[in-house]
Nucleic acid binder design. Structure first.
Lengths: 161, 161
DNA sequence: CAGAAACGATTGACGCGTCAACCAGTACGG
DNA sequence: CCGTACTGGTTGACGCGTCAATCGTTTCTG
């Protein structure tokens, strides 16, 4: 993959263009379904992360990491979620700096009602056209990339993780 | 891939999580390099799209499509690019509604200087950890998804493409 | 050759995310 | 202990993207 280190080869170019199309076309489309129900994609991923955590509770910094968002972005979004009673925030008794976020019953029920709609979008826009082999290969590739990012945090800006 | 149509299987879940990680971690990181040089990723993709077009010129609506962005987003970004002299806009002589965008020499030189930096980021964050086989499989999968999106525009919101 | 529908592009209000401070609490080093 | 560095989280300004509405132009239809 590396005759000319300054440019992408044809395969890489195709992967790069395809990824951009997926991210800039499919993702926004999925978010529209959620928006029609008063939720951002970010909100949804917060719900999912909390829902699958023990006691539906996560330290805020861990939540930001689980939901692939920056710390300050999480803080901003939390304002409305707490106000709407879908998430509750409590001080961590062991560490005066930390806070824990808990998905309330209301939040869980919001997730339960939206998950099928969102999953349907994900299937329709991403996985329906793929064979099982293509899906497996896609999962393999993006997981490798994601793992590599986590293993090399020096590649990433401090704010973002 | 479809025993339970309401939920994702394990492989799909992995692909979905990996794609989110790529979108929300790798892409913003790449954009930071461009921002350090006064450009958004959107600007860069506008430059690339124009640069590879005949006469470095594209009708605005085609440009929006090539750069994976909405029409109105393009209009907003064009303001600064034109003001900075990196892109020029002319009326289309054949169709009174349309306008054409042309990459100026200044814009081309901006692209020439930034492309190596950006390509290096793309390689470092996306392709370096992948084998040639993984890269090819990734390209195959995302291209299939992207083609499917184009073939089914009814899946997409009118504004987005 | 009207009238209606569709197209290409623009606008402005609004909400969101980034970034660079910032504050408080905790851990570490002498 | 005390000061320093670090960690967890917050804040507000600012620029960006979305969305719905709009305008002028072109194309379709009878």
């Amino acid at each position: 993959m590396s005759e000319t280190p300054e440019w992408l080869d044809e395969t890489q170019e195709a992967a790069w263009a395809g990824l951009r199309a997926v991210l800039f076309r499919a993702f926004p489309e999925m978010e529209r379904t959620l928006k029609a129900h008063g939720l951002l994609a970010v909100h949804y991923h917060i719900f999912v992360s909390l829902s699958s955590a023990p006691d539906r509770t996560l330290r805020l910094s861990d939540l930001a990491d689980a939901a692939d968002m920056s710390q300050s972005r999480l803080t901003h979004r939390m304002r409305s979620l707490v106000k709407r009673g879908e998430v509750a925030i409590t001080e961590d008794p062991d560490d005066g700096r930390a806070k824990n976020a808990t998905l309330t019953d209301l939040g869980q029920s919001r997730l339960d009602e939206l998950a099928p709609l969102h999953i349907a979008d994900v299937r329709r826009l991403l996985f329906d056209p793929l064979t099982d082999e293509q899906t497996a290969a896609l999962a393999d590739a993006v997981t490798t990339i994601a793992d590599h990012l986590c293993e090399h945090p020096e590649f990433l800006n401090p704010q973002s993780g």
